[in-house]
Design a protein around this nucleic acid. Structure first.
Lengths: 238, 238
DNA sequence: TCAAAAGTGTTTGGGTTACACCCATGA
DNA sequence: TCATGGGTGTAACCCAAACACTTTTGA
């Protein structure tokens, strides 16, 4: 029996878990499927990989086609290969994850018909999704948690000018999301001490406006300084 | 155009990076290929995934068929999907990794002819391998490094009775393998203090024999205690 | 008696934790 | 004037790092 007949029977898809942060809430971008299987169900944006593209390329292309998101940094999570995970045949999927600032992007379901809608869903309120997508999300979230502690990706989720409290809420949302209900806050003073001691934030000498309390100072993330430190062998750790 | 015609064109392989530890040296199990492509080249043990098995199952089966290794705990690393990585067509591979005690297993190349030989190669002396297997190893090694610091897998690599110095050498081989040539040793006293303070080792009150120096005490790893602590929410960290 | 590895404690500094009150603003 | 979140410092503790000499064995 020829190798090609015997083993070239499978299809590959890519599914992206795009995390966003907005109004103190961690969210995931989902599409409402307009095609079989699982028509009408919420799912991760994902589709088949073409012959001429790498997995990474496919993940980018498919994400844009289904949601309009472009120039998003996607990272591979892992692959999922249960035998019957797709009714059309043997389909193995590769999960990707990304982290973006919701306000920077416009979501727009593509014209292919696969995505009837594309919307942000609060991470805490995600129900049962199509395929094994809940499992994909679980792995992606573990990865996000690890990343956020060892790389300064948290800043990517906030506006260019942000307050220390916004930053703290972001970390709390990601790091403490599944902790016991007590203990779900970081200590304000210690958090500030630690973040500021890294010297990666620039005090803009500007303040919030129009808030009904003492306005907070605004900071920005100093990307250049981070690169320097990184090259010098220092490593970030929250 | 039908979905099946359009997208079900690919094959899947699994490739395993099996780390072993012996005589103070970190090793990887390689096969010498007896089939095209890359006949005669060293490669990771790997082959095609069948229709009826999951990726995990395939990794186990293939590893056994090619090397005789059985009941090895394999974990997924990630997938590799460059378009031209396999000359026979579109083949995406999923990398796996495992960690075993070399002396516990017998290596025996299978009868399929794919593996002409199966041998341990010192991690530091691995040359250019078939396909993109050097890349697979690079990712697996990063994973190993992370694992060894957060889970007590190091003990799996040593004989049931081991000395603290053996354990230390093991950690040095994994954690410091690519550090600057100075600084490639852990501090003996600090290492012992830390390891013993975790209370995961049982002092066997036995000693090495026949060594030309003061014989070292033998310890074993207390798996039960580890499970207890794990369940109680404690986490291991070297 | 020599070589080779085993074994052992203390000090120091830096980092993490815990903790409570006043401040500036808009309503 | 009140409610709301912004902003600040210190003391206690713990952990990591640095560091050198004695012991036991076989050759």
């Amino acid at each position: 029996m020829d190798l090609v007949d015997q083993f070239f029977y499978a299809a590959f898809t890519v599914d992206s878990v795009v995390f966003g942060f907005d109004e103190g809430d961690l969210k995931i971008l989902l599409i409402k499927r307009g095609e079989e299987p699982f028509t009408g169900k919420w799912a991760l944006p994902g589709y088949f990989v073409k012959k001429t593209e790498t997995l990474d390329n496919a993940a980018e292309r498919v994400l844009e086609e289904l949601t309009g998101l472009k120039n998003v940094y996607l990272e591979q999570v892992r692959s999922f290969g249960k035998v019957d995970r797709h009714p059309a045949g043997r389909v193995i999927t590769c999960g990707y994850f990304a982290l973006i600032k919701i306000s920077d992007y416009k979501i727009q379901p593509g014209s292919t018909g696969l995505a009837k809608r594309a919307e942000w869903h609060s991470y805490k309120e995600i129900g049962e999704l199509a395929f094994d997508h809940n499992e994909v999300i679980a792995y992606a979230f573990r990865m996000l948690k690890r990343r956020v502690r060892t790389q300064p990706i948290g800043f990517e989720l906030l506006p260019p000018k942000f307050t220390l409290t916004q930053l703290q809420h972001l970390y709390e949302a990601i790091l403490l999301s599944d902790e016991s209900p007590e203990n779900n806050k970081l200590d304000k003073r210690n958090f500030r001490k630690k973040i500021l001691s890294m010297n990666l934030l620039v005090d803009l000498n500007e303040y919030q406006e129009g808030v009904a309390h003492r306005p907070a100072k605004l900071y920005r993330f100093d990307k250049e300084k981070y690169r320097e430190l990184e090259n010098a062998g220092f490593s970030y750790e929250l």
